[in-house]
Nucleic acid binder design. Structure first.
Lengths: 186, 186
DNA sequence: CATATATACTCACTGAGTGAGTATATATAC
DNA sequence: GTATATATACTCACTCAGTGAGTATATATG
């Protein structure tokens, strides 16, 4: 199994990693850039950004080096490691999201960094995400079909999830247009 | 402050409290009932259920009493306190959710327990939720309007959120029909 | 007779997320 | 010219979400 357990495990850690692909930086700056570029996609407080960076460092995805400054407080110069780079590009190509929320958050983020670092892959990640949405819809439809009618509230919930997935399907078409992705090549 | 910060702080704790309104019970049973009744609304693991119950106890919303059994492991007989009851009904009437996700989770849960414990309030909580959705839509529209066009990804995200809210508005109409809620009285 | 399932709960761990605090520099407002 | 707000840069303590595995016994099923 693995994949998305359920909800949770959804965090902008790969976005932070993605900014570091372009070159070393430090926490304050990464948070600033994050808010400016993706602030309406994710919400990320400053302290949470630092917490995530600390975790990435413990995992060995980034390395830190203290840089003293004359007047302002010292910085941690953060640099992505080979492992971090590997993990990032793996996520960029394979981290396909399954729920409405994770599509809005993660897929948009993957699209952002694909445009930035691997524009030639845009169509590929788009198609993969689209396929996932289609199979999600089928799964939900079959779940609903087999759910006893008297389970009113479970029904209403699954129903909304299904409708949301279909909405996202249409929204994906808008994206296709905006990014000039050709229709169904492979 | 308070309300819904952003995401997170979303938990089925009031549902557990809601089951206890009907009478004392214990963790295992509450979890079973939860999964059967609302298992496709929320996901709640057994251990997480126990964790939430422990918190409710620490807060004084429920009280626990160990009941030995002849053959099977001892139970904790859980009983809602006056404070818990107060908190629950306050949430039932006023805990109006604002995001797509929290509407699917919390509003459906509030509807479930309103039907169960306060059926005469159904229309009231429906109308309040509907109003919240309308004001959410307005807020998102104004946010989008003031967002610089070049912020492609922030735009796409807000756009999807807006469309989702509108979808939920339609889904609410289905609910109105199913629960025979009259159209716009007050 | 072995094994799966039901009853009932505990524990250790990772991670999300907030809010406040620390300390200094520069820009702006009165 | 001095008070105040804002920018730079990061830390800490805390609460809550969520998983996965473990403990221990009873009964049902093949």
């Amino acid at each position: 199994m693995t994949e998305n357990k359920h909800s949770g495990n959804l965090s902008p850690e790969f976005a932070l990693l993605g900014f570091l692909i372009s070159g070393p930086s430090h926490g304050y700056d990464l948070h600033q850039r994050f808010v400016a570029e993706l602030g309406h996609v994710w919400h990320l407080s400053q302290s949470q950004a630092y917490a995530i960076l600390k975790r990435l460092e413990n995992r060995g995805d980034i390395s830190a080096q203290v840089v003293e400054q004359e007047k302002l407080p010292a910085r941690q110069r953060l640099k992505i490691t080979a492992q971090g780079r590997r993990r990032f590009f793996e996520w960029l190509e394979l981290g396909i999201s399954a729920t409405a929320r994770s599509i809005r958050l993660e897929f948009l983020t993957r699209l952002y960094f694909t445009q930035l670092h691997r524009p030639e892959n845009t169509s590929q990640i788009y198609q993969a995400q689209f396929a996932k949405i289609e199979s999600s819809i089928e799964e939900l439809e079959s779940l609903i079909e087999h759910l006893p009618l008297e389970q009113t509230f479970n029904h209403l919930s699954l129903d909304l999830r299904l409708q949301q997935m279909k909405l996202i399907q249409n929204w994906m078409a808008e994206i296709r247009a905006q990014f000039h992705i050709s229709k169904e090549i492979r």
